[in-house]
Amino acid sequence: MKPSHRFSGAEEVTRRLAETGYLAGIGIATVVHIADRLQKPLLVEGPAGVGKTELAKAIASTLGIELIRLQCYEGVDETKTLYEWNYKKQLLRIQAQGDESWDAIEEDIFSEPFLLERPVLKALRSTEPVVLLIDEVDKLDIEAEALLLEVLSDWQVSIPEMGTVVAKQPPFVVLTSNNDRELSEALKRRCLYLYMDYPDAEREKAIVLKRVPEITETLAEQVVRLVRSIRELDLKKSPSISETLDWSRTLLALNIDTLDDDTVRQTLPVLLKFQTDLERAAGHLRLNAKDN
């Protein structure tokens, strides 16, 4: 089997991801299948908590290969993405010099034993196939993004002091973005693109049943319908799948087996974190109105 022909088609992707507990619709599965065949990085964009990170984990899990994760945040630069020199060790080495020439020392301290490998370099140098997850890439600065782009284009990194590292095999790269920032056109051109939205009602219900198996089907359905109704509102923070799951677990813990105005009103704060959002949702669902 070719390394990049790991699935026979979208149906197999769906089935195998489901075995790991990740339920993907046919659209997601098709794109994962294509990303595998074309060996192209996959950029997954969408609101927080819709299953972007989880998708990368599920892919690694079903392929039985290592997941290398680069968590991006403000100020991450190449010393966190690619590599860094171990400065402490270098200083010690310089101080411990005998009668070696400066040139010899300089060459020595910029060699393998002094190199601290970061996720992207690690993924490139891995002899085994890996999934490289570059999580929340929209948090990166433009410069750091440009650097990543180079790596993703050529599957190689050049370290001035050591030369060029070329990937033994391109990793399966998944980049995620919460869309806090428009990524560069160049990066997007390099990648396949998947917009991940909230799942449809049927799939979200299946996710609830899968992740909170003790829940009844009726309650799961009510929960999902209510969450979907709330997502239609203009909120500061829309409830995501994580919140749907949290809410389901809360209801279970409270022994609530059916939703009505009172139970919803009491437990809504699990779903919505901002007071203004809570008020808006309560108004929309007319929770404060008299039942009729």
Binding site: T30, I34, L192, Y193
Partner: peptide, 11 residues
Amino acid sequence: SALATTMVKSQ
């Protein structure tokens, strides 16, 4: 899906 993922890079 195949055309969207390869040609449309913004929702």
